[in-house]
Amino acid sequence: MEDWIRALRELIVEELKRSKFPLPADRSICSKWMEGMAEGGRRILYTSCMYQLAPLIDKAVDLLRAMGASSGGARARLAAVGAKAFGRLVLRPDEERLRWAEGVLKNIAAMLKRAGVEFGVLRDEPYSGALLYELGFERDFAEYAKSVYAYFKEKGVEEVITVDPHTYHVLSQIYPKYVDGFDLKVYSYMDFVKPAGARIRGRVVVHDSCLYARYLGKYDVYRRLLDEAGVERAEDPYVTGRAYSGCCGGPIESVRPDVSAEVAKLRVQQLAKLSEVVVTECPICYVNLSKAGRGVVKVYDLAEVLA
């Protein structure tokens, strides 16, 4: 497992240095959804490519499993050798998943515009580095975070509106610890939008992002947005309470995909007791639960539900 983690670190760090993207992929998928939007400005809508990346993580994890990353021991050592070959691949997401990501991001942009928020986008936006921090490679993260901050300053950015919990967490709470003089104001799109209605009907169950619920104080925010949109929620303190609202397993997908998949399966079983319709606020939760919940629950992102 140590060999595998070392190989994973090398793969991510090398890829970030080369393309400011954590996986070997075609970067155009990051900016495709931005057509017709203003470039730059002091306030930007920053995706960190998270929604566009999520379909790729799905593919990458399948590949990791095929290479034996989940089994530990000798096979993991083989997998570590395989990581070099993995780095030379160019991953391509499924068109359907990519359309989903673009739809979510376009809807977030439209809701912000309707709420009177002015913003621009950056077509060459770099990845935030959240994965490095979350896997525990703090020194690599610190170095990378400084380069991302320098990029924002060079572009004249003062305020950043994020769309996912991982980017919001690292920018608002972790960057200030590692980047001297960090002075960007960081928001979530949820801080601004005022939903006029909902795109789906019936009772839903909310799957909380661990970061939004237990690190960032947003547990009540997306519930309020759903209430304002007229969406009925099913709640149970042992399924959706602040402590019992379990993780989707996503953070260890690249370390132990087998354990991650089991965690997701258990989470789907809990959620399905309350509703067949699950609402997530994080692209990683969306991908993980969609995969584990195939045929059991239908998963939506919050920005697909709100209108």
């Binding site: 525990g136 993780c247 953070p251």
Partner: peptide, 14 residues
């Protein structure tokens, strides 16, 4: 290594 590398950092335990 296995124990520490597989923590999800979800903070439910805290």
């Amino acid at each position: 290594v296995e124990s520490l590398a597989t923590c999800l950092r979800c903070r439910a335990c805290e």
